[in-house]
Design a protein around this nucleic acid. Structure first.
Lengths: 346, 346
DNA sequence: AAGATATGCGTTAACGTTAACGCATATCAT
DNA sequence: ATGATATGCGTTAACGTTAACGCATATCTT
């Protein structure tokens, strides 16, 4: 691989001139520029990123704003692990991050987190803007013109650098397809179990599901304020098998339904499709109580959030505006490899 | 992030001494070693890989031995693309590769490729050892003690550095599960379509499938020497729908069956499950003619093959001996994101 | 006791890139 | 004509790490 020195020698100029031409920093004649550019092309010269980083020694401090890792059945642990892995890899490239957590059902905790975050200025931001309106209030003030990556949830017209996420409607379609397949006998109904607190993803997952499901369905909303979730589950338990042949859970809590099915010994009779490969869901999927788990690679979402900011801020790469993760279908027969690769990357 | 200079200053020694202690190159006293190691730990010093690479400027020339990219319905294009992407990323890290291709159904072409490869000595090797016995003949001579990555197919007891691949039996189990689900009416039979030329993967995929499938099944072998494949397909076409409710294709050629189904207008009546997201399969999957495609991330297999050798040879990382890829389930509802990410990587 | 070897350590060029700096000419304004 | 600015280019320190080299002492040979 040719170096800048090779180019300079072949062009009969100094590396300074070549550098100025490459970065268009002025102070060169069009004549030499043309000559140098031709040689760059001929030698297939590409700048050595390692040397570039070393020389620039750019910093990138990142503030990360996400829910507490243990919320949603420890779902947030997964992107968190992805971010930590990326930060580990990039530690010597001067990428570092501070984490700020909030309770996704409590707006006050979001404001607190935002205030704490505002105390210091960061070079870039990663956020899961689960409470969009409250986010937007502080958006201009805190995030300013710094690069911002949203993951999990997007905010339109927010001048964010990148959104990393999922196509929730497709995920709903897919769940419907699987439920349809699982229920050969379509006389009974399917129950949609979803958190009482609405959000875009859940709405889209339900919408997509309804568009494709061939069975009649009911919907039940689980209280998220810890009030009487227990009674709601008890209610579901009563109606399992007698009324419902299938259950579709729109968030990561399908293990709750799985445990009800287990209690009733209804294993193979009730079809169960849910989301997210959190620990509690893994066991039930291995045993076939949960028939299918859909995931959108949360580990990779976290990993990519950090890595993208590195590319933007340190390397100066132009990056795409959106990155949709594939929807993986996980079931007893293929879960092992997904679980193995859950913690590590590359 | 602390540098070696920081460590040296804090320990009151020179960076040379610190370096010798870190790499255990002798010429230091146990006393200073202890002090320096403590400081390294306290400061959480980690060596800057970029600077390390720059300084070492190690080379890694790789020889890659794989079938022609257009074999198996262009399947081999996929890992090939993964390798090219990795090589692109690592070009300035002094990683380069030469490619040697062979016809997977013609042993002579393998010997030719091996001979060409032997003309030059490489720092490392990547191979898809699809014809294991012939591979082993040349193994000792050519590969010697250099690091070797096998992907797609493994050879036991071969002192390879790493195997990147798939669990074919699980892939068979999974296919059986999907076929079972697709065929509510289990009165008819399922047809297993497989190439006449045996190999480990195909055998395992069939074995796994048979272990789990609940329907009666027949097997038909497609000639691979281009002799009378056309007649064999014609035979299948005659029996579609009248005799078979489902078809399981063990390699990447399910588009062949899909086109037969299309010709007969049997879309939704015949269940079709196959492997590999090659171009011809994509269109039929989008249209729902192919119900499910299973893949084992061939792009990533190629990408990781090169990247692993880089880690081993250039970075000196200790790497694992085996890497099994997840088996992805792809269907009309989730294919779009998989196709998008097919060509590019991070 | 004189030379040989071993031990412990510091210094430095090199890897490839960047960007500040300096030095000539050339062109401008007044 | 004289100073001011612009143009075109070369030189160089710095980024962090590595490994060769050199220089003292110390310990061993015979």
């Amino acid at each position: 691989m040719a170096t800048i020195k090779d180019v300079a020698e072949k062009a009969g100029v100094s590396i300074g001139t070549v550098d100025r031409i490459i970065h268009n920093r002025g102070r060169f004649s069009q004549k030499t520029a043309k000559k140098v550019k031709k040689i760059i092309h001929d030698l297939d010269y590409r700048t050595n990123i390692q040397a570039r980083n070393l020389s620039l020694s750019k910093q990138c401090s990142i503030a990360v704003l996400i829910p507490h890792p243990d919320q949603d059945s420890n779902y947030w642990q997964l992107p968190y692990n992805g971010m930590r892995t990326a930060l580990e890899e990039l530690a010597t490239s001067h990428v570092s991050a501070d984490f700020f957590h909030f309770d996704r059902h409590d707006k006050d905790t979001l404001f607190q987190a935002l205030n704490m975050m505002a105390e210091k200025e960061y070079d870039a931001y990663v956020a899961a803007p689960l409470i969009p309106d409250e986010f937007l209030e502080s958006y201009e003030d805190i995030f300013q013109s710094k690069p911002v990556v949203f993951f999990d949830t997007d905010i339109e017209n927010s001048h964010r650098l990148l959104y990393i996420g999922q196509d929730s409607r497709e995920a709903g379609h897919l769940a419907a397809k699987l439920i349809n397949l699982l229920c050969h006998n379509k006389k009974m109904r399917v129950l949609i179990v979803t958190p009482a607190t609405e959000n875009d993803h859940l709405t889209s997952r339900i919408l997509g599901f309804r568009e494709r499901v061939t069975m009649e369905h009911d919907i039940i909303r689980i209280p998220t304020d810890n009030s009487n979730a227990v009674e709601t589950y008890a209610e579901i338990k009563d109606q399992l098998k007698s009324k419902y042949q299938a259950v579709y859970v729109t968030d990561s809590s399908s293990h709750q339904i799985a445990s009800l099915i287990k209690e009733r010994n209804l294993n193979s009779d009730v079809a169960l499709v849910g989301y997210d490969l959190v620990e509690k869901n893994i066991e039930y999927t291995k045993r076939g109580v949960i028939d299918f788990i859909l995931t959108q690679r949360p580990f990779e979402q976290g990993y990519l959030s950090i890595k993208s900011l590195y590319q933007k801020v340190i390397l100066g790469t132009v990056i795409q505006k959106e990155h949709f993760m594939p929807i993986d279908i996980i079931t007893a027969e293929n879960i092992s490899c997904y679980v193995e690769s859950l913690s590590g990357k590359t």
